[in-house]
Design a protein around this nucleic acid. Structure first.
Lengths: 334, 334
DNA sequence: ATGAAAGCGCTAACAG
DNA sequence: CTGTTAGCGCTTTCAT
């Protein structure tokens, strides 16, 4: 492999000039820049990553910590990872893939060895045990998910509150006056993830604001529970015409249950969901999606900003987008 | 961050002794090794990755090139990636994630900059354009998939021929005498991937060997095609009692079609599939799976062997495992 | 606008 | 068994 001294000799300049010509960190005359570029091309020169990292104390590598726990939606994680890699490359960085499994020790390892110079941590819990470490680490990091106290951190997530609101507002616009939220399965709350609560907040707030009658029903992630939930919904809210489902597992069974109970979707009942795109697409449900690709890109951009010494907001909440499908329609007028 | 000279001073030895005590590359007395370890612990010493890579010409990083093309099964790729990372960590290596998108340029880049010192390339096609480059690269690589000419390369894949055989043999053992293979959709052949052909070979060979009557039916990946395929199967092979499906997309529609045509699975017709685990599990189909985790682990181990100067086989074909589910049963005797 | 030279932190001869 | 020393290839002062 050609090295920087080879390029320098060939271009008739000093190594430092080559370095500066390539990095642009100090003014170089057009003539020499051209000669340097030429020499680089001819020799197929590539700076040695290790040498660069050692001398420049920047590895140009981002570490991505991905979850593999049961319950995480694989396509969403993958789409996110792809977006991170793509965006990182656009900023001339590479991505080191780590599993959650390595835990805090893993974060410390890549930071201390200077393998990476920034971290992206996915699947952050409300009271994540890694938060103190991330706060104290010299390396900048971006978290995906919104913990209870984002102070001193940088977090990106879907605005789940706005997602809850968007669903209700959509139903309200269609003339629905009585709505219900079928919530996340208990384990989501146990896992101390913030988003479930935030959906409830948004749902309730929007309903109150719009003068709608509303109720919230948590639901176990089983078909049987979905069936019972559907029955209970209709019993307790006979005038119900709009439902928001934030529980991917029961989406299909719930729809089935409604239809078995004699309710047509969307004619008698409008249904919207907050879930990944595929299930909603498959079932034709109007839904709000986690924009994984956008979250990934944004995470990288925030990291780049921080690496450049910039200051960024502690929480970046992405606006939800509602995709209209066949499961919602104007309320039938009697 | 503490550096090796700090550790040396504290342990009362020279830097090289610290290095050797840590790498084990030359004999060190128990006493000094202990003192070194102690100093490392006290100072929380971590060798600088860049410095190590520069001086030792080994980055301890593996590059993983993952596909994201339409048509690749995301959970399979993900499971594979996780297994690669986990296994790499066991060998004290890290994994750089790259997208197929970067192409040959990307491979060249990580190799030339010494960012990684070995490559794992997924989704290798029969006549993959990257093969010449991979052959000539100084860095060792392992390919996932079996190209037409594996000479000078190291490839790992499921033994699809054996998978075809395993399905037929399973059906034969259950007493079935007339079998059919519903093959891959045309695009798989167009993509010049070897595995489709190899399944056909195994299927036919095993059927011939066992004296079974057999036929092969390629099938478009649409429900309509599945329906037509089912009808044609029964028309052309009225005595058919065993089916092998190597076409994930039509698995469910095919089963539906059979049942609509009055055939009970498994009572009238035994069905086996070669496909990822989830669909087979969901539909209760006896199946042969691509053991992604095992493939990933094996790929890393082969790479380690090569990095250590060892010689490894050009093609490693993993034995398929048949998972029994409710879709196969002994042939009903008239 | 360019060059000279001093490291960055580690490994691996080379010498005992 | 251990120490001394010379780089690995690049970036970045410090000069001019």
């Amino acid at each position: 492999m050609a090295k920087i001294t080879d390029v320098a000799r060939r271009a008739g300049v000093s190594p430092s000039t080559v370095s500066y010509a390539l990095s642009g960190k100090r003014p170089i005359s057009d003539a020499t820049r051209r000669r340097v570029r030429e020499a680089v091309r001819e020799l197929g020169y590539r700076p040695h990553a290790g040498a660069r990292s050692l001398a420049g104390s920047r590895s140009k590598v981002l570490a991505l910590v991905a979850p593999l726990r049961a319950g995480v939606h694989v396509p969403v994680v993958t789409q996110f990872a792809v977006s991170v890699v793509t965006t990182a490359r656009r900023h001339d960085h590479d991505v080191l893939l780590m599993t959650q499994e390595e835990g805090e020790e893993g974060l410390r390892r890549v930071a201390d060895t200077a393998l990476a110079d920034a971290l992206i941590v996915m699947d952050v819990q409300l009271h994540d045990s890694r938060l103190p470490l991330l706060r104290r680490l010299a390396d900048p990091s971006v978290l995906i998910g919104l913990p209870a106290s984002p102070e001193g951190l940088t977090c990106v997530d879907l605005d789940f509150k706005a997602a809850g609101e968007a669903c209700v507002e959509h139903l309200a616009r269609l003339g629905h006056r009585v709505v219900a939220l079928v919530g996340s399965p208990p384990e989501v709350y146990v896992r101390q993830t913030a988003f479930a609560q935030r959906v409830v907040q948004g749902f309730t707030a929007a309903a109150d604001r719009g003068g709608l009658v509303s109720a919230v029903h948590p639901c176990e992630p089983t078909p049987a529970a979905a069936r019972r939930g559907a029955e209970r919904l209709l019993r307790e809210q006979p005038a119900l015409t709009g439902v928001v489902v934030h529980n991917e597992a029961v989406l299909r069974p719930l729809i089935n249950a409604f239809e078995q109970l004699g309710l047509r979707v969307p004619d008698d009942l409008s249904v919207t969901a907050i879930c990944p795109d595929e299930p909603a697409e498959a079932l034709g449900i109007t839904s709000v999606t986690l924009p994984s690709a956008e979250v990934g890109a944004r995470a990288v951009e925030l990291l780049m900003e921080k690496l450049g010494g910039g200051v960024v907001p502690e929480a970046t909440l992405l606006r939800p987008g509602l995709t209209l499908r066949a499961s919602t329609s104007p309320r039938a007028t009697a």
